[in-house]
Amino acid sequence: MTSSPSGQPPAPMAVPAFFVSQRVTMMVNRYEIRAAAPDGSEGQLLALAEQKRMKLKEEVVFFADETKSRPVFSFKARQRMDVSAQHDVFDEHGAPLGMFSKQFGASLLRSTWTLSAPGIEAVGRERRPVLAVVRRVWTALPVVGDVPVPFVFHFDFVDTATGAPVLISERKKAIRDRYTVTVPDPRLDFRVAAAMAVALDALQSR
Rank of each mutant, 00 (worst) to 15 (best):
M13D: 08
V143R: 11
M13T: 04
A202Y: 13
Q86A: 12
R70G: 04
R128V: 12
G105I: 06
R110A: 07
M196A: 04
L203D: 12
A195Q: 09
A36M: 13
L188Q: 05
P165T: 09
S116V: 10
W138P: 00
M81C: 08
L115G: 05
R187K: 05
A49C: 12
D65P: 11
A195P: 15
T162D: 07
V192D: 03
E42A: 15
F62Q: 03
D146K: 14
M196K: 03
Q51K: 15
G145E: 08
A117V: 09
T139C: 02
T112V: 08
V134K: 11
L46G: 01
R206Q: 07
Q204H: 10
R110Q: 15
V72N: 14
G7P: 07
G145S: 08
H87Q: 00
I168L: 08
A36K: 09
L167K: 06
Q22N: 02
F157N: 11
M1K: 03
R136K: 15
G98C: 04
L97V: 05
T162M: 02
G94N: 10
P118H: 07
D159V: 06
Q8A: 10
F19M: 05
L167P: 06
A194M: 09
V134H: 01
D88H: 14
P10R: 14
V15H: 00
S6P: 03
S84G: 14
S116L: 06
P148D: 11
E32D: 14
T182F: 06
V123E: 09
D82F: 14
S101T: 00
P186I: 12
A95K: 15
M99C: 11
T182I: 05
F19W: 15
P148H: 09
V15M: 02
R176K: 13
N29Q: 14
F155I: 04
V137L: 12
R178A: 05
T114N: 12
R78K: 13
V137S: 03
V158S: 10
F18M: 04
R135A: 12
I33R: 01
T139N: 01
P165A: 07
S116K: 10
Q44S: 02
V192H: 04
Y31W: 13
G40Y: 04
M196Q: 02
G43L: 13
V181D: 00
F63Y: 15
A36I: 02
V181W: 07
L167G: 01
T182S: 11
E32N: 02
F90E: 05
R206G: 13
V20R: 01
F63Q: 05
P186S: 13
R53K: 11
V181I: 13
L108H: 08
R135N: 08
L115V: 11
N29R: 14
A199Q: 11
D185I: 09
M26A: 03
V89T: 00
F18K: 02
S4C: 15
D201G: 06
E58Q: 13
V123L: 04
P142K: 06
P38K: 02
R176Y: 03
S3C: 10
L97P: 07
F18T: 09
E170C: 06
R70M: 11
L141C: 08
V192R: 05
F90G: 01
